[in-house]
Structure formats: C-alpha cells, structure tokens
C-alpha cells in the first residue's frame, strides 16, 4: 500500500484525535494573538454606547446550552456594557432552556461585579412560549405577556418596569440568538413594525445570512460566533472568555484547512495517475 492509499483509507478516529489535540494544545499553551474588532462588532458596541443612563433595553436571549460556548460570552459582555451605561435591563427568552443561562450571567456580572439590584436595575422575565406571537404581543403590553418574572414574582411593582410596558418605552433590543426563533424573526416582526433598533449576536452558522440585515440597517450591530464575541469583549473590557479561546480557534481552523488541502492533493495525484494509466 502506498502512502496515498493509506491516507485515503485512514480511520476517521485518527482524524478525530488530530483535531482534538489541535484544539486542546492552545488551551494549555496560549499564543496570545491580538484581536482587531471588525465593523459589525464596532457598530454593536456603539449602539449600546449611545444609550443614556436610565434607558430601558430589552435583552432577548434565544438560545440553549448547545450554543453556550459561542453565545454566553456575548451575553456576559453585553450585560457588562449595559451595566456600565447604567441602563435598565429587561431580559426575556423564547427558548425554554435559556432563562437559567441568563440568570447565571446576571448573578455573575450585574450582581457580582456591578452590585446591581434585581427588580430595580434588571429583571429576568424568563421563558414564554409562542415565538413570533410573543414578539408581537410585547409590542402591546409586556405585563400582559409576562405577568410574573422567571421566579414567579409579579413584575408590575418592580421599579425596573416603571414607565415601561411596550416597545414604545424601550430604546434598543439586544438579541442573542442560536436560530429559530431568533434574530431573523426579531428583524421580520419587530424592527420596522415597531420602529425599534436591534443589535444581534448570533452563532457563526447563521451569521453569514444576517449580513444583508446589517448592510440594510435592519440590524444596528452584529456579532458572529466566537470571533464576534471576542471582538466585542475587546471593545468592552479589553479581554474576556471568548478572546482567550481565539488561539484554539485559530489552530482548529488551520488544521481544517490542512485537511482540505491534503485531501485534494491526494485526489489530484490520483486523477493524474488515472489519466496516465
């Protein structure tokens, strides 16, 4: 068996091992490559930066643990920037598995680092079933959709909700999304109908599809995947959990590129052999 045949018949478990170590090594030995924020992340940051203290923001967290490594850093960095700006955060989810992740970020950032008070500075309304219907109902009355928060406490007399009951009282929607329902539906249902600006952080899988929304102004900012999260972290605080993982990410990409090139090299050599024979 020549080397080409051997490579062609390579057990895929060996490929699995290669990618495993390629991603693992930089976690132990960071390279410290520098991160430069792109225009989409810069616009995301600027949209939040333009808010005034006391403004109310709707934080739409629509994902689940399957996308945690990509999206949790975005949520945390967004909460950090919102806390720095002293705006009120009203969070809700259309994915049932999301509210505990929002709680986790609030406890860690808003309460832990900024001493914000639940019910006064921020609230987690939790999950509500209904997808696009909920998006529209929030334009009628937030209290109608969410009589109580994620822990079952009535939201009516919380100071954070004073003067806020629909999109008319909200300055910006910050969406973190892993798919349906998510960024696409917020743009379709809410952006122009209630004329409210939206910034979105989404998984890398769906990001390329949302570039047209950014160019058209339907999204005022866009973060795509871990790279987007890392760029945003650099803007908010100089570093963060996503930024630390970018070295591993870089090496993973290089190995995939190597696989594509090697696979095609063998294919090319084979087809030449074929035409000679």
């Amino acid at each position: 068996m020549d080397w080409k045949t051997r490579l062609e018949r390579l057990d895929r478990r060996i490929i699995f091992l290669v990618i495993f170590f390629a991603v693992l090594m930089p976690l132990f030995f960071p390279l410290g490559l520098s991160i430069t924020p792109g225009p989409e992340a810069t616009a995301f940051h600027a949209a939040i930066e333009a808010l005034q203290p006391g403004d109310a923001v709707y934080l739409a967290a629509d994902y689940d643990p399957g996308s945690l490594p990509e999206l949790q850093p975005m949520l945390e960095a967004a909460i950090e920037q919102l806390c720095k700006k002293d705006v009120r955060i009203i969070a809700g989810s259309l994915w049932p598995a999301c509210p505990p992740l929002v709680n986790r970020a609030f406890t860690q950032i808003a309460e832990g680092r900024f001493q914000k008070v639940y019910g006064t500075d921020y609230v987690n309304l939790g999950f509500k079933e209904g997808r696009e219907v909920v998006m529209n109902q929030l334009g009628q009355s937030i209290r109608g959709v969410y009589p109580v928060d994620s822990a079952g406490a009535p939201i009516g007399d919380m100071p954070v909700m004073s003067g806020v009951d629909s999109y008319a009282d909200i300055k910006l929607i910050v969406n973190v999304s892993a798919g349906y329902p998510g960024t696409k539906e917020w743009v379709q249902q809410v952006r122009s109908r209630y004329s409210i600006p939206i910034v979105a952080g989404c998984t890398a899988v769906s990001a390329p599809e949302y570039f047209p929304y950014f160019q058209s102004g339907q999204l005022s900012g866009l973060l795509g995947g871990l790279a987007g999260a890392a760029e945003y972290e650099v803007l908010v605080s100089g570093s963060g959990p996503a930024a630390k993982k970018m070295d591993a990410q870089s090496l993973g990409h290089i190995v995939i590129i190597g696989f594509i090139l090697l696979g095609n090299l063998i294919y090319f050599l084979r087809s030449r052999e074929g035409s000679v024979a």
């Binding site: 390579l10 895929r12 699995f16 290669v18 995939i256 696989f259 594509i260 696979g263």
Partner: peptide
C-alpha cells in the same frame, strides 16, 4: 467539530 474535520479531509473534493 469532529465530523466536520473528517468530512473536510475525506469528502471535500474540488
């Protein structure tokens, strides 16, 4: 992540 690596090597043909 593993599947995509395997597919990149074995089934990405130009």
């Amino acid at each position: 992540a593993f599947y995509i690596a395997s597919a990149a090597f074995r089934a990405f043909r130009i």
